[in-house]
């Protein structure tokens, strides 16, 4: 049994007797995962699906994610919803840097993952993970609101499993882990650097 955890059988028995036992970590993560505030931030057609997910039919409020914040200082989650052009990429990294820890990123749709149909174009970034770390990827062009809700639930699962102490504690609690990433500069031909060399590993080339 790891630190900060209680035996499941004992806990069920206690609960039956009217005693609710929890740990700081569970309480903390329970609160965090049910009040994820996304940054109000859309880039292309995926943003329309994100709006649909926030509206009454799909209703992301059921999962505690309806508080779209207009300021990165108040946001926990950045949903990169749409095509990231090279002109927009520095602003996205800057917004990410301005978000307080713990912060999460959902890369929504083919464009935000890899550039999508515009991958071989001259002004589209081939995936936002070249500059900032991504927690959940949603494929689709654009993904349906259900897919965004699924990604949201996956993110909740991830938050729930993050440890607050010990060796395997969450990344954002480790002081040596960077929470800000260098903002690329506009170069004469491309962004400079074209990807963050410290964090980005290009996919292995395979012959089609």
């Amino acid at each position: 049994m790891s630190e900060g955890q209680i035996d499941e059988g004992l806990r069920a028995e206690l609960q039956r007797q009217g005693i609710w036992v929890t740990s700081m970590q569970e309480l903390y993560n329970w609160g965090r995962k049910n009040s994820i505030w996304p940054l109000q931030f859309g880039l292309a057609c995926c943003a329309i699906e994100m709006i649909a997910a926030a509206a009454s039919r799909y209703d992301i409020a059921r999962f505690g994610g309806e508080v779209f914040r207009p300021s990165p200082r108040q946001a926990d989650l950045m949903i990169v919803a749409g095509t990231v052009t090279k002109k927009m990429a520095p602003q996205i990294v800057r917004l990410y840097n301005q978000m307080p820890d713990p912060k999460y990123v959902i890369s929504m749709g083919a464009c935000a993952i890899s550039g999508g149909p515009f991958k071989q174009g001259y002004n589209v970034l081939k995936g936002i993970d070249r500059y900032i770390p991504v927690d959940v990827y949603i494929p689709g062009c654009p993904p349906r609101p259900e897919a965004l809700l699924h990604a949201f639930m996956e993110l909740q699962r991830k938050i729930d499993s993050q440890k607050l102490s010990g060796e395997n504690k969450a990344e954002f609690l480790k002081p040596e882990q960077p929470s800000e990433f260098p903002v690329p500069e506009f170069g004469e031909h491309d962004l400079n650097p074209p990807a963050n060399p410290k964090t980005y590993r290009p996919p292995k080339l395979e012959r089609a």
Partner: peptide, 23 residues
């Protein structure tokens, strides 16, 4: 494109940055 950009991408002799990724 941004102001610092020097090329004109729709010209037929435009050379893209060499940033091919797996397709």
């Amino acid at each position: 494109m941004w102001d610092e950009f020097v090329d004109h991408p729709m010209r037929k002799d435009y050379v893209q940055p060499d940033d091919f990724e797996w397709e």
